[in-house]
C-alpha cells in the first residue's frame, strides 16, 4: 500500500507538531488565538493518523462517514450543551 518511508515521514511530522503545540502556549499569543491554533494542530494530527496509520484514505468513504457521524453527534452535544448555559 504505502512504504515504510511515508510512515516514517508522517511520524516525524506528528512529533514536530506535538512539540509546536506546547511552544504555542509560550509564544505569547492572545488566549483564544492560541487555543484555536492548538486545536487546529490537534485536528491536523488526527487527520494524518486516521488517513494514513488507519489508512482511511484507502478505504471506502463510507467508513470515514460512519466515524464522522459519531464525531458530529459528539460536537452537537458539546456545543449545544455549552451554548445552552451561555
Amino acid at each position: 500500500m504505502t512504504s515504510t518511508k511515508l510512515y516514517t515521514a508522517i511520524y516525524v511530522v506528528l512529533f514536530a507538531m506535538a512539540t509546536a503545540q506546547v511552544l504555542i502556549e509560550f509564544a505569547g499569543l492572545a488566549y483564544w488565538v492560541g487555543v484555536a491554533a492548538i486545536l487546529a494542530l490537534s485536528s491536523l494530527k488526527a487527520v494524518m493518523v486516521a488517513g494514513y496509520y488507519q489508512h482511511l484514505r484507502f478505504e471506502p468513504p463510507a467508513i470515514s462517514a460512519v466515524v464522522l457521524v459519531g464525531l458530529l453527534a459528539a460536537l452537537v452535544l458539546t456545543f449545544a450543551a455549552a451554548y445552552s448555559i451561555l
Binding site: 464525531l71 459528539a74 452535544l77 458539546t78
Partner: peptide, 12 residues
C-alpha cells in the same frame, strides 16, 4: 465510531 461518541461525551 461509538467510542468516538463516548469520548466525545466525556470531553463535552
Amino acid at each position: 465510531a461509538s467510542d468516538v461518541v463516548l469520548f466525545g461525551a466525556f470531553i463535552g
